[in-house]
């Protein structure tokens, strides 16, 4: 049985100027930008078309969202430090920083879980209002992305790190691709936090 080797996983491809790992992750992120971009466009249209749209923002917890913002920004820092450690071939530091990134993702999800349960206790479901429907759609989709990113980071942290010793350059490229996805997810939150939690009612 023959095995297929994907070319240009470490070396730069002449026609694109980047390796295939980076090209692949950016093509994927382009589709993600279109997905979230369409949701943001929907948010703008629904908000501007409804004077009572923003009434639900007062029901959200700014302190919890602030905590989650701090957690995600910190996780981006530890993610990039894990990538730097992988490039410097410092395995102990890579394990430490990647572990912190995975834990930060878990903390974000736990806080989000508390936030959701508080909403459900007050009978605030997506069917309550347009704002709550958008809130659950945005944050639910975002949380799904956090779970996926956290899962892949956890793979690189423990089982996938075997490649660190066998092919360090390819491993560093994988960490970079994962880091790009993680940064994208965090950047989406940077936009979600002010528009969902801080913007006043559309009527005010």
């Amino acid at each position: 049985m023959s095995t297929t080797v994907i070319p240009y996983t470490t070396e730069i491809r002449p026609d694109t100027g980047v390796n295939n790992v980076k090209l692949g992750i950016w093509l994927f992120l382009a589709s993600e930008i279109m997905l979230f971009g369409s949701l943001f466009a929907g948010y703008i249209l629904l908000r501007t078309g409804n004077p009572e749209f923003g009434a639900g923002s007062g029901a959200l917890s700014v302190p919890m969202a602030t905590l989650n913002t701090v957690v995600l920004i910190t996780s981006s820092v530890t993610m990039v430090l894990a990538w730097a450690a992988a490039m410097e071939q410092n395995f102990a530091k890579f394990r430490l920083y990647m572990g912190c990134t995975v834990m930060a993702g878990a903390v974000f999800l736990v806080v989000k879980g508390f936030e959701y349960s508080a909403k459900f206790e007050h009978h605030l479901y997506p069917s309550h209002s347009t704002f709550m429907a958008i809130y659950f759609t945005f944050t639910g989709l975002h949380a799904l992305h956090v779970i996926v990113g956290m899962g892949y980071n956890a793979y690189l942290w423990i089982p996938g790190s075997k490649m660190f010793h066998s092919n360090p350059q390819q491993f560093a490229n994988r960490v970079e691709a994962s880091g790009l996805f993680w940064h994208f997810v965090d950047l989406v939150w940077i936009f979600l936090f002010p528009i969902l939690y801080l913007l006043p009612d559309a009527a005010s």
């Binding site: 913002t69 920004i73 981006s76 990039v80 990538w83 970079e176 880091g179 790009l180 940064h183 994208f184 965090d186 950047l187 940077i190 936090f193 002010p194």
Partner: peptide, 15 residues
Amino acid sequence: LKAFHVLFVTASTLL
């Protein structure tokens, strides 16, 4: 990732 991180830090600062 270096360039994206700089963009991210800039966005975080503005936030």
